[in-house]
Amino acid sequence: MSGGRAALRAPRRRAEAAETPLPQGVALAADLAVQRGAFRLETKLSVPQGEVTAIMGPSGAGKSTLLAAIAGGVRLTSGRIQLADGAVITRRRHLPAARRGVVMLGQDARLFPHLSVRDNVAFGLVVRGLARDRARQVADEWLWRVGLSGSGPHRARELSGGQQQRVALARALAVSPRLLLLDEPLTGLDAETAADTRAVLHEQLSSTRTTTLVVTHDAFDAAALARQVVVIEGGRVMQRGPVRQVLEAPATRFVAAVAGLNRVRGTADGGVWTAPGVDGDVRIAGETPATEADRAPLVAVFRPADVRLSRAGETTWTGALRVARDEPHPIGEWLGRVVRLEPTPGGARVHTTKPDVVVEVPAAQLAALALAPGDPVRLALDGADVRLMPDP
């Protein structure tokens, strides 16, 4: 009987022993699916050891769900997560969060209100078996590293929001996590506090070489903190690569908006890029990739500051549209309609259609134009300011 049980167990042991180890330099590999109601996240991800990887995407894309699955707060529907120590997590082999060596820090610092700042930082070390006195010494060292030397005896409520976030960071890093997950940690902080906290994050993550995944909606945070970025939209990975490469060549309108660029879909037509406009095709004489044949899908990428905007000759939309249809317009110029205006420190971003294009307008020009939603405008763009790329 015992021999029979051993025979039944043997295949499982062989299967577990056959797990392929992660490549050197990889801290975590995931190829997973999580179903939450009607939403489904399907993501493949490889996290380099000792580096910061940014996760970007619009609201509801699945970014926080991904972190929760990695941290152990959400069970996988299918697929697997593999850690550098060889542990493999599946739906049936669900490793508890406490055994993954993963620490998550979100927008809320979640400090213990009844403990001092020092004991908040020391808490994880004590739980892991370090003597309390030694844990408090280590906590003081970490408070010094995040710029809060001398704050140890205080309670969390005596600190500002930015200071509390630094305490939470010190507590997370003090336990030397296998993987640190940051879920928009700078959201909710004012600009000055966020800048200070960002600088502390960059310094400490660089010096400790802590493998980190940071969810952010801000391209500046991604560029300041991370080397790689993964873009998730609708539960799928839409783009990945070095931060600069992704921001310079956005594969979706979301990435273009985050990078502060226009991204308009069109086609190649006799060496000219064309896209549907309200008064016929918009045509730009950009440098068409040599490999693209006529009618091949092309994406035009250009900066809002490179678009020139002026009022149309007619003040009403119907009047401007009638004139535009009767008069030919040169390449690089078209009629648009103001959709909305977003204030900026130096003026406004004017959203126009069709096609959907954002234009940066300085304050003085904005005052002279006196634009309002629905107004007809003329737009112009030099081909030299446009980068044309194949539409993936």
Rank of each mutant, 00 (worst) to 15 (best):
D294N: 10
T20V: 13
V214C: 10
A98M: 11
L341I: 03
R283G: 12
P304N: 11
G162C: 08
W317D: 13
T187S: 15
L381Q: 01
H351K: 02
F302S: 07
R80N: 08
M238T: 12
R134H: 14
A372K: 07
H217S: 12
L298G: 08
D119W: 02
R132Y: 12
L182S: 04
H329G: 15
T210C: 14
S176C: 13
R244N: 13
V229M: 05
R378C: 15
S2K: 02
F39K: 03
L261A: 13
A312R: 02
G241M: 01
I81A: 04
D140V: 00
D279V: 04
E342A: 13
T315A: 15
M1I: 06
D31N: 11
E203V: 00
M238S: 14
T353Q: 15
F123V: 01
A109W: 03
F254Q: 10
G161T: 01
G152E: 02
A84S: 09
I331W: 01
P276L: 07
T316H: 12
G286T: 02
V237K: 06
P11A: 04
T65I: 08
G271F: 07
E333Y: 01
L182M: 04
E292G: 01
G346L: 08
W144V: 11
L309F: 05
I70E: 05
L366S: 11
G37T: 02
T53I: 03
L76A: 05
N262Y: 05
R91N: 15
E19P: 02
G147K: 03
G152R: 00
L201E: 10
V377I: 02
V127W: 10
R166C: 07
F112E: 09
V243M: 06
P58K: 02
R13I: 06
L369Q: 08
R93W: 06
G271K: 06
P250N: 11
I55M: 09
P355C: 04
D119M: 00
V138T: 00
G162H: 09
E51P: 10
Q204Y: 08
W334C: 08
A380P: 08
W144T: 14
A363E: 14
S46H: 07
D183W: 00
M56W: 03
V278G: 13
G347M: 01
R13Y: 08
T211A: 09
I89D: 10
L130C: 04
L45T: 04
